[in-house]
Every structure is written in C-alpha cells, then in structure tokens.
Simulated scan of single mutants.
Amino acid sequence: MSLIFAHRGASGTHPENTMLSFYEAERVKADGIELDVQLTKDGEVVIIHDETVDRTTDGKGKVKDFTLSEIKKLNAAHHFQKGRLKAEIPTLEEFMEWFVKTDLVCNIELKTYTVENNELENKVLDLIKKFRAEDRIILSSFNHYSIYYCRLRAPEIEIAPLFMEGLYQPWAYAKGIRAEGIHPYHKACPTQLVIQSQENGIKVRPFTVNKEKDLIRFFQAGAEAVITDYPERARRLRESLGL
C-alpha cells in the first residue's frame, strides 16, 4: 500500500508549513508529513519553503535576514483565505515536540544551496537525535551534497534526493549516494520508473501529486508513497481502490 505524505502539511486546505496544516494532516489520517527547513539570521531552524517570507506571510524579505523573534511576529497564514487565520512560522524544534507524540513519519526537505557550510544539516541532525526520531525521518533535498553529508554523519537516517527532470536509471544514482529512496517530480516519474526503481530496492515517493488520475497511477504502480497537498482526498481515493 502506498503511503500518503501531506505536502507542507495539508496545504491544500490549510496554510502551508504551519502547525495548523500539520495538525490537519494528522486529523485526516495522513501517513506522513513533508516540510521544508532553513535558518534564520540567528541560526534557528524554521519551517518555511521560500527563501523569502513574501508569498506566505505579511512580511517582506529573506528568511536569513530575520532573527527568530522577528520572524515569529509574522502571520504565516496572511495570504491564505484572505488572512482569516493566524499562524506563526514554527521552528523545527516546536514541530518535533508535537511530532514525536504522533504515529506519523516526516520528510524534512533541507533548503540549502551551499556545498561548504553544513550548519543547517548539523542543526537538523542534532534535533532529530535529541528527540530520538531517527527511524521516523527522511531527509531530502535538491542539494544532493547536503543529503550525502547527512548520510556520512548520520547513516541511520534515511535520505532521498529530489529531482525535477528525467534521470537515467535513478535507482543506480540513488545507490551511488547511498540513498534508500528518490523523490521525483511527478511529471518526471513514469510508471516504469516506479516499478524498476522499487525492483532495484529504491523507494519512490513522487511529488506533488494532486490529480486523481496521477494518484491512481502511482497507487496502482505501488509507489512507496505519494506527496500531496490534499491528504484526505488521497486517502479516500486509496480506500475506494481497495489498496
């Protein structure tokens, strides 16, 4: 049975990457949560997707230029449903305090672009170990140097490269960086790629799968998981297929 990961939480119905969205993902019985992390000016790990706060909050500027106290003053639900909701940008530590009390798994995407500075990776790994959640976390990134660094420092934590374009024999590439899975963009993930990758021992979790026909295709192909903005809709579809 394919698992269902809530993309930035239940972001199709709740403000993305907020505790409101994560709570909803658990309520609708998602199997896991996908979220994004980066660092503030004072080195705190916060959960937000974009390099800037402009799209999702009532502020403007780059995440790295805000201190934690400054970024906490912003409303992370400002552009959702015309600002009717209020939500803070959560820290990863705040999320982890709640997460370890659930039965969920979590895919943490590392939003980092450097191959030299591993401050984000080290702080994320330290938090995972602090909460003893190594067996419930998957680390992914478009920066494959980043997740390979994590593999070397914490080989007990699963890693999976993200990619947007077609990749020749991605299972071979994954094995080359000692990854257990791959997270391809759904349009770069034909059915045969799912089958061949998993036959070669590499788990496939495509993103961001929202259309019914795409969900059905990945469910029937036996993908390890789908990453979707609408976890409740995906779960009901999976149940209707008897999978």
Rank of each mutant, 00 (worst) to 15 (best):
K130I: 03
Y149H: 04
S146M: 00
I89L: 03
Y148I: 05
L125H: 04
L139C: 01
L139I: 00
L127Q: 09
V105H: 10
N117Y: 14
A77N: 10
L125R: 07
T67P: 02
E116F: 13
V100W: 01
H144S: 01
H79S: 00
N122T: 11
R151T: 01
I71D: 00
P155W: 14
R153T: 04
L125A: 02
F95Y: 09
S140R: 07
V124H: 09
T114F: 05
L68Q: 08
N117T: 15
K82Y: 07
K62H: 13
I71M: 05
K123H: 09
F66G: 08
I157V: 06
G61D: 15
R84C: 02
V100I: 10
P90C: 01
H79L: 00
I89N: 05
A87N: 04
D58W: 09
A76F: 03
E94A: 14
K60N: 13
W98R: 14
G61N: 14
E70S: 04
E109G: 06
I89F: 06
K123Q: 12
K123I: 09
K64T: 14
F131L: 09
V63A: 01
R132E: 01
H78M: 08
E121K: 10
Y113F: 02
L120V: 14
I89Q: 06
N118K: 13
K62W: 12
Y149A: 01
K101D: 05
E109F: 03
E93P: 03
R151G: 04
F142D: 08
A77H: 12
V115Y: 15
T114Q: 11
D103S: 13
A87S: 11
E156M: 12
M96E: 09
K60C: 06
V105E: 10
